[in-house]
Computed example of a mutant assay.
Amino acid sequence: MEAAKVKNRGIILMNLGSPDSTEVKDVARYLNEFLMDERVIDYPWLFRKILINGIIVPRRAPKSAEAYKTIWTKEGSPLINITKQQARLLEAQMGEPVEISMRYGSPSPKEAFDNLLKRNPDITEVVAVPLYPHYAMSSYETAVEQARLIYQTNRYPFKLRFVPAFYNDEKYIEAFCNSIAPYLQQPHDHILFSYHGIPARHLKKTDVTGHCLAKNFECCNQPSIAHKTCYRHQVFETTRLVAERLNLPKDKYSLSFQSRLGGGWLEPFTDIRLQEMPKEGIKNLIIVSPAFVSDCLETLEELEERGKEEFIGAGGEKYQFVPCMNTNPTWIDAIEHLVNKDVK
């Protein structure tokens, strides 16, 4: 896609982050920063610190380090490397400077802001693109609020604009459909849309209407101003739009939630469904993850590797993991569209 270059504008692609290496100490440092975020584990600070430093990180870091080793490449973290590739492609396509920042780890939003200013001291606007299609306080919101705080604290001279969650954006849906369509040409029994899970209580915290979690979640299917920040509604809507565009029969797809940490998270759980499906006659499964735009630990290790073991171990016969959009040209076009969407 060809686009006119906007003078004195910079772009930042914002993603979750990754440990610096697969060493246990680096993984532990990363997990500590991640889990101590009050928008991820929303308990009182002292209880959170005791829980994370005393129990979760000591137990989880060695296991997570082993998991990271299974996906690590010679370039390092897949998530960071893919985000860098997306930035290079977008910059070449748009003719504007593009930097990346991570919510946890490096590079930080401050590094991204400073790098853009070094490249163009006359920059007047920065467009930040949180690479989370769906709004959740533990992903989109925390990334935006951290970047906004750094921006305000350092009194940068340029304007800062954030691209909103794009779960129903036509170009995102098109790009996602284009990335998975080739896999749907092969025989299969079912398609599972696996989204990152969140605690159900987080829905209430981002709800401005007070009706969330009522009526067995039927509120997600009713028009509401709460949908702007309702993660559950947004994943339902993405699934519906993708299914409509690809003409998927209603009995041939479903959704689930992965990566849970503790009780009270959104259901059904992906790992449980992978064990149940073969008993229901689903032997040939395609699994996709619309919540992620770049392959990472949660897709490469949790879904592609562990998910396959769970499904085949439960009696499944064929398991096809579909990679994220990554550097798919239609996804780069979609990012460009999102950056320019509100520009008059």
Rank of each mutant, 00 (worst) to 15 (best):
S101V: 10
F176W: 00
P97D: 05
N178W: 06
I150M: 01
Y156N: 14
P97C: 04
P109F: 00
K118W: 07
A128L: 13
P121S: 08
T124R: 11
E174T: 03
Y132V: 10
P157V: 07
I173V: 09
A175N: 06
Q146R: 15
P109I: 02
N178R: 10
A112I: 03
R103D: 03
E125V: 04
R103S: 12
Y104C: 02
A147V: 02
K159V: 05
N115H: 09
I100V: 10
R103M: 08
Y183L: 06
C177H: 11
H134N: 03
P157Q: 05
N120C: 00
G105M: 08
Y183Q: 07
N120A: 01
T142L: 00
E170F: 10
A175H: 05
A175W: 04
L184V: 06
F166D: 03
V163M: 12
F176D: 03
F162D: 04
I150A: 06
L117F: 06
V163P: 15
Y151C: 02
M137Q: 09
K159L: 14
V163A: 14
Y132Q: 10
E141G: 08
N178M: 07
Y132N: 02
Q146S: 13
S106K: 15
E170C: 00
P187C: 10
N168S: 15
T153S: 12
I150G: 01
E170H: 07
M137D: 12
E174W: 03
M137K: 15
E125C: 02
Q152W: 03
E99I: 05
E145C: 08
S108W: 04
Y135Q: 10
P109M: 05
V163H: 10
V144I: 08
L117T: 08
P164C: 08
I150E: 11
E174P: 00
F166L: 04
K159C: 04
I100D: 01
T153P: 03
S101G: 12
P121L: 04
E145K: 13
C177N: 11
P109H: 04
N154D: 12
H134A: 10
E125D: 09
Q152C: 00
N154F: 13
P97M: 03
Y135W: 13
A165I: 11
S179I: 01
D122H: 10
Q186G: 04
Y135H: 12
L116Q: 01
Y135R: 07
Y167W: 15
Q146T: 15
Y172E: 05
R161V: 14
F166K: 05
I150Y: 00
P107L: 10
E111T: 12
Y167N: 09
I150K: 04
R103A: 08
L116E: 09
R155N: 15
S139K: 05
F162G: 07
V126R: 03
S108E: 09
